[in-house]
């Protein structure tokens, strides 16, 4: 059981959350015309063995989208912040405008 330190609700079980995938992926501008850029956005991933920034949705809690730093090899937890606060470091696809 992963336990995630939600910045709103505190330490909560993984079963309250939905996984949202790699948070370092940035959606291209809507007028982007290079298919390679869209290909990378939709399909290719860094898939690191180690530190990973990832989205989690606290679906059965405060319903906020979060950005969590987690090690994919050890499952060690790092910082967890609201996705809207992480905008700028890594623009978030799920954050409302």
């Amino acid at each position: 059981m992963l336990r995630i330190q939600c910045p709103v609700c505190g330490l909560r079980d993984e079963t309250e959350f939905t996984y949202g995938g790699d948070a370092t992926i940035t959606r291209p501008a809507m007028d982007e015309t290079d298919p390679q850029v869209w290909l990378d956005y939709v399909f290719t991933r860094e898939n690191p063995r180690g530190a990973h920034r990832e989205y989690w949705h606290h679906a059965l809690g405060c319903r906020q989208w979060l950005v969590l730093e987690r090690d994919t090899l050890t499952h060690e937890m790092g910082a967890c912040v609201l996705a809207r606060d992480a905008v700028g470091e890594a623009p978030a696809k799920e954050v409302a405008a």
């Binding site: 790699d22 290719t44 991933r45 898939n47 063995r49 994919t72």
Partner: peptide
């Protein structure tokens, strides 16, 4: 993905 990265490739794969 780990070995492809050593070769400079990004793959459409998650582990």
């Amino acid at each position: 993905g780990h070995l492809a990265k050593m070769a400079g490739l990004r793959l459409p794969i998650e582990t």
